[in-house]
Simulated assay, not measured.
Amino acid sequence: MDLGLKGRRALVMGASKGLGRAIANSLAAEGAALVISGRSQASLDVAAAELLALGAKSCVGIPADVANGEDMDRLADGAVAAMGGVDILVLNHGGPPPGTAMQITEPDLFTWFQRITVSPIRITMRLLPAMRAQKWGRILVVGSTGMQHPIPQIALSNTLRASIWSWLKTLSGEVAADGVTMNVIAPGTIKTDRVLETAGKNAATKGITVEESLAASAKEIPAQRLGIPEDFGPAGAFLASEQASYITGTMMRIDGGRVRAML
């Protein structure tokens, strides 16, 4: 299937590795032009070369930290300068450290609210007017199934990611008539550094090994295995595609069936 992404201009945040990289890989394979962000220029340069080899029309790495609002402005402006505009925006970043709800502190709330909610909104509002003017745009938030079904031991993530989901749901209705779609793509237990960190926390709490913690997680998934980034990236490319033009304000779970909720 031709997803209609050849030559489309995509800004993918947190794309040097993990889930952001998985989406960038799929967009590159469809011939999209890319700007990728992360905190290390060296890592971005390596990723950019690999994405060009996969078929990206062009690829530029711009370092940026979601903890810094001015970095979001610079990243948006740099992407527009590099590609002439942004058609697809993938909002992705690392999550807060594992912990229970009782362990959340007020400083943690302020710190991570900036990263999870404020910065993604800031860069979106900088790029959204041009999408609306051209009557085409795709905005994806890489979220978590914890937005819908709170996950033990990542209470701060559960709390704050719910706010960005609520914002997206609200805004998606305001821009849908302009040809701009906004969706959440929510990973379940997929083998990334984040999942390994959480498994380590759970293992330490329960007095078991990380491998035993991961195996226990797999047993709770109907697919009977953990996901891999290659399970995730193509779904992001589809939601960015021409074929997904009537899908907006939704959450797509990539979780092997783990969340049993019907909504």
Rank of each mutant, 00 (worst) to 15 (best):
M102V: 01
A76T: 08
I104A: 03
A218G: 05
G143S: 14
G38V: 06
M251P: 15
G4C: 11
A186Q: 14
R253H: 13
V210M: 12
L27H: 11
A216T: 06
L52S: 05
K17P: 00
D178M: 03
Q103T: 13
I104E: 01
L11E: 08
W165G: 09
D178L: 06
G94H: 04
G78R: 02
F232Q: 02
S157N: 06
K206Q: 09
G179I: 10
F110Q: 10
F110H: 10
M147D: 07
R39H: 06
S172C: 12
R225S: 06
L214F: 12
G38P: 03
H149T: 14
R21P: 00
L52M: 03
A56G: 09
T100D: 07
A79V: 13
Q148C: 10
M182F: 05
V66C: 00
L226K: 08
L140Y: 06
P107N: 02
L5D: 05
A48T: 13
S217Y: 06
E70M: 02
E70G: 01
M251G: 13
D45S: 03
E212T: 01
E106C: 00
R138M: 05
A237I: 14
W165N: 13
L127S: 03
W165A: 14
V86L: 05
H149K: 13
D178E: 11
I247V: 11
G95Q: 09
T105Q: 06
V141H: 11
G99R: 03
P97V: 04
I164E: 04
G78Q: 06
V35L: 03
A199Q: 01
S37W: 07
L239Y: 15
D87K: 05
W167Y: 12
A29F: 09
R132W: 04
I121Q: 05
V210W: 08
E197K: 10
K57F: 14
G14H: 01
G14T: 02
M252W: 11
L168T: 12
A29P: 02
A240M: 10
G84N: 12
Q41S: 04
H93Q: 11
W165M: 09
T170M: 14
L54W: 02
I151K: 12
K206I: 00
P152S: 15
L75A: 09
A22M: 05
S16P: 01
M251A: 13
A162C: 07
E70D: 06
S40R: 13
S163M: 11
E106F: 06
G31H: 07
P234A: 00
S245Y: 04
M72C: 01
P98F: 11
T248R: 14
G249I: 06
V175K: 13
